[in-house]
């Protein structure tokens, strides 16, 4: 298996401007570490030949990079216009009740992080909930119990 350093070097070769590999490199580092810890940022920076500060600056601009630890599973509820119109707020509240956390928080056992996100590009299938980046469509508050159970069963 190739190391993160090697993978980033390969990515950089794909782009005419090596710095363009910053976002995919950060994604790789986040996948490896679970979140972009200082250590993960340092590793990404070494691969990219940039400073850790540069990587931190880029990562902090984007919502999908985590600069604090997250749970093993990620529940992201879209609360943008289309989803809001068909009850995203109620879906979100159902997740809050079911998981016992507020948006942005992680369950005490470190299993699940709940977040709200902006448009996921699935307005025709509102409300969209992304479970570990896989979409569930037409989610209703009543579905939430089963979804959480499924997540927890996944270990």
């Amino acid at each position: 298996m190739s190391t993160l350093y090697e993978e980033i070097r390969e990515l950089m070769a794909v782009y005419p401007e090596p710095r363009s590999a910053t976002l995919p490199a950060l994604r790789l580092a986040q996948e490896k570490h679970g979140w972009l810890s200082p250590e993960a940022l340092r590793e990404a920076a070494e691969g990219l030949g940039e400073t850790p500060a540069y990587c931190m600056a880029v990562a902090s601009f984007y919502d999908m990079f985590h600069l604090a630890p997250v749970g093993r599973h990620l529940v992201e509820v879209c609360t943008n216009v289309s989803c809001a119109l068909v009850g995203a707020q109620q879906v979100l509240e159902a997740f809050e009740r079911e998981l016992g956390v507020r948006p942005g928080e992680t369950t005490a056992d470190g299993e699940v992080t709940l977040r709200t996100v902006e448009c996921l590009g699935g307005c025709g299938w509102a409300t969209i909930v992304a479970l570990d980046h896989r979409y569930r469509t037409h989610v209703q508050p009543a579905d939430v119990g089963a979804i959480v159970e499924e997540l927890r069963a996944d270990g």
Binding site: P38, L41, E50, T51, P52, A53, Y54, M56, A57, S60, F61
Partner: peptide, 22 residues
């Protein structure tokens, strides 16, 4: 060209920072 002083976050939350406590 030291790349150490950067803007963290975005929009109104942007702030000037170095990496961690370095």
């Amino acid at each position: 060209e030291d790349g150490q002083l950067v803007a963290r976050n975005r929009g109104s939350m942007s702030m000037i920072a170095t990496f961690e406590d370095e």
